[in-house]
Design a protein around this nucleic acid. Structure first.
Length: 680
DNA sequence: CTGACCCTTCCCAAG
DNA sequence: GAAGGGTCAG
């Protein structure tokens, strides 16, 4: 991240020719050159955390550690990829044996190797949120709970409830009493549903995201031989964003670490923003206590931001009680402007301001990919998206819905999922519900018939799916299409096994889905385009299992082939992102929008009146402003127009009150109402 | 049992 | 202002 000092190669002090002392600052060098053992690196925002980690990997390779003995755990695929790329640039040796990835992808990788040993097959399905939801619904139905008389939680609430149980390691009862007290009366039924859900996943050879972690831990715990194997393999474990690890992730790290392996964790408590999914800051705060003899390094020099922005961030975070005292020092000299606080009338004017300012910046020579617009929640980006389109400013958005979670993409991949995992009930039901006249009820019956045919649990494929399907009765009007599905599946499974992923998608598209899209979606062209992109992406894979795994594990931005292509074609574009997804990134110019009470901090947090939650919001605010290198614009729309309740007058975000006036510059671009004239 | 239609609810963040 | 849930006719 830090580009202020040039990389200089001089006389080879190391195999790779890296002069560590020269290329790193003192603080970074100490961490990078730390001897084997346990180490905690507290690295402030913009202090070169990624740089430190990548140089650490290079250092290990330079000191005769083999790539295959290194495990690098990150939070996003993007971060993993970036670090690997940078390591490759640093050292000349082969790094393909190095394991780097998210906790989930590493878990998945381990589980696939040993799936047969605990009742799964290596073609197990990974359930996303949507799949989880439909499975949860069928489980609740099967449990025959009287959900009418008293409100029973919905599928997605159940999913996040059970997820918290797994990720925090707490009992269901504790989670319910603590976070869902209003469902206390349902405790018995909840336990029943959770058990049934777990059983269902096993029966259908499926895992949700949490299973990728918790089953890995369970596997290693129950199999000392495997544990020993992996402990021997991963001599050096490095963990990024340690402040956001939860209970299971920490458990996994500790298992792999064992007694003797080296462990380096890097993080910043001020940037812990995932407690809502079970992250526990205690992991980083208690690390020195829990690991006696561990070394601790603090990196406090900030290379990213001008002092005006850095000072502001220091003040912002100081309002929190729960934190390590840290003092970030700017290495950069003063910039051209103070952070701007821009009051605007409403979201429309907010969008206009951002659009207008971006055009001006462009004229001043700022590249579009040096600009980001950040927000608390995805839906807050609507007006800006329209404005950008209107002005013809190219932008890349990390939208709420992932590319692979869109209905048409899921429909197509359901074919691939079912053909590789014939126990995949969710995929099967999705397939058959594409047929006219088939709804949840019939789908359930058809699944029963398929299961009874015996082919679900057989390892080998039926010679012809269409023959097996002939015996499964469907209404007259869907008979032809049902047979067609059989033919498509046959085409996907030639005698040699599985067709290539791209050929499979082609079969689905030509066999029926193209027609289906024409008749079912009003934006046929757009969706067809997406499926073709999926096909194109599929051409880079030979193995359909790997392809499907990638699809499930990828997040919207790091995977979307569409976005990548657009980027390559269209040149630089403005980034629009939630603050959560902007973690670890930086831009010259950052616009932070919707800084009003109830928007950011979020209304739910304010209602809960929980100080811990409010402090997390403030850390999120801190993450947002520390993304900016040169210029920061904080926007506050005074009015929130709502179609159904009428306009709402909003207060400025409380985070803005923490700043002394002289630290910011107020830009009043709103209409100049005086208090008397204001219509409120 | 499906699917059209109307009504309510929501609208936080991710792998 | 959409999407999911409930209701009811075929």
């Amino acid at each position: 991240m830090a580009r202020d000092y040039q990389i200089q190669r001089k006389s080879a002090a190391s195999k790779s020719g890296i002069d560590y002392r020269k290329e790193l600052n003192d603080e970074q060098f100490k961490a990078v050159s730390s001897p084997d053992g346990r180490a905690l690196v507290i690295a402030g925002a913009g202090s070169g955390k990624t740089r430190t980690l990548t140089y650490r990997v290079a250092w290990l390779l330079d000191h005769d550690v083999e790539a295959r003995n290194i495990l690098l755990l990150t939070f996003t695929n993007k971060a993993a990829k970036e670090m690997i790329t940078r390591v490759r640039e640093l050292v000349s040796q082969d790094t393909s044996d190095l394991w780097a990835g998210t906790f989930h992808s590493i878990g998945s990788r381990i589980l696939r190797r040993h799936a047969e040993e605990f009742g799964f097959t290596k073609s197990f399905t990974i359930l996303d949120r949507d799949d989880q939801k439909s499975m949860m619904n069928s489980v609740v139905t099967a449990c025959k709970i009287e959900t009418k008389k008293n409100k029973f939680p919905k599928a997605d609430v159940l999913a996040s409830m059970f997820s918290l149980v797994v990720n925090t390691g707490q009992a269901l009862e504790d989670i319910v009493l603590e976070r869902y007290p209003y469902f206390e009366d349902w405790l018995i039924e909840l336990a029943q549903v959770m058990e049934a859900y777990i059983a269902k996943k096993e029966k259908t050879n499926s895992m949700d995201f949490d299973d990728l972690l918790v089953r890995t831990v369970a596997l290693l715990k129950s199999r000392p031989d495997l544990l020993a194997l992996y402990q021997k393999k991963f001599r050096h474990i490095l963990v990024d964003e340690f402040q956001d690890t939860n209970h299971v992730q920490c458990e996994l790290i500790e298992l792999l670490e064992g007694e003797t392996n080296s462990l380096m964790v890097v993080g910043d408590d001020a940037q812990s923003i995932y407690s809502w999914r079970g992250a526990d800051m205690a992991n980083i705060l208690d690390f020195p206590e829990k690991k006696p003899g561990s070394r601790q390094f603090t990196i406090e020099t900030n290379y990213r931001s001008v002092p005006e922005i850095l000072d502001l961030s220091n003040v912002a975070i100081r309002a929190n009680k729960e934190r390590f005292e840290k003092n970030l020092i700017a290495s950069r000299i003063g910039g051209e402007m103070k952070p701007a606080l821009v009051s605007v009338d409403d979201p429309t004017m907010q969008a206009e301001f951002v659009g207008q300012r971006i055009i001006e910046l462009q004229n001043e020579g700022v590249e579009l990919d040096e600009i980001a617009i950040l927000y608390r929640a995805h839906f807050q980006s609507m007006e800006i998206q329209m404005e950008m389109t209107l002005r013809g400013i190219p932008f890349a958005i990390t939208s709420g819905l992932r590319f692979f979670e869109q209905a048409h993409i899921k429909d197509v991949s359901a074919f691939l999922r079912f053909v590789t995992n014939r126990r995949d009930e969710v995929a099967f039901k999705r397939l058959v519900q594409l047929l006219p006249g088939i709804g949840p009820g019939s789908a359930d019956k058809m699944w029963g018939a398929w299961y009874k045919s015996g082919w679900a649990e057989k390892e080998e494929l039926p010679e012809r799916f269409s023959d097996v399907f002939d015996a499964i009765k469907v209404p007259k009007k869907s008979a032809a299409d049902w047979q067609q599905i059989g033919f498509i599946l046959d085409e996907m499974t030639p005698i040699e096994g599985f067709a290539r992923p791209s050929d499979m998608i082609y079969s689905v598209l030509e066999g029926m889905y193209d027609d289906y899209m024409k008749s079912s979606f009003d934006n046929y062209e757009h969706r067809k385009n997406d499926v073709e992109k999926l096909l194109e992406y599929g051409t880079t894979f030979d193995d359909v299992l790997l392809f499907l795994e990638q699809l499930s594990l990828m997040s919207n931005t790091d995977g979307d082939p569409a976005a990548k292509k657009k980027e390559a074609d269209a040149g630089p574009q403005v980034t629009m992102s939630s603050i959560h997804q902007a973690k670890g990134l930086e831009w010259k110019v950052v616009f932070l929008i919707w800084l009003a009470e109830g928007q950011f901090p979020n209304a739910r947090v304010l209602e809960a009146g929980d100080n811990g939650m409010l402090e997390e919001e403030r850390r999120l605010f801190y993450v947002a402003i520390t993304r900016a290198k040169d210029q920061l614009y904080m926007l506050y729309p005074m009015i929130n127009p709502k179609s159904y309740t009428g306009d709402i007058m909003q207060q400025p975000s409380r985070f803005l009150n923490d700043f002394p006036i002289d630290m910011i510059e107020e830009w009043n671009v709103g209409s100049s109402w005086t208090d008397e004239e204001a219509p409120f």
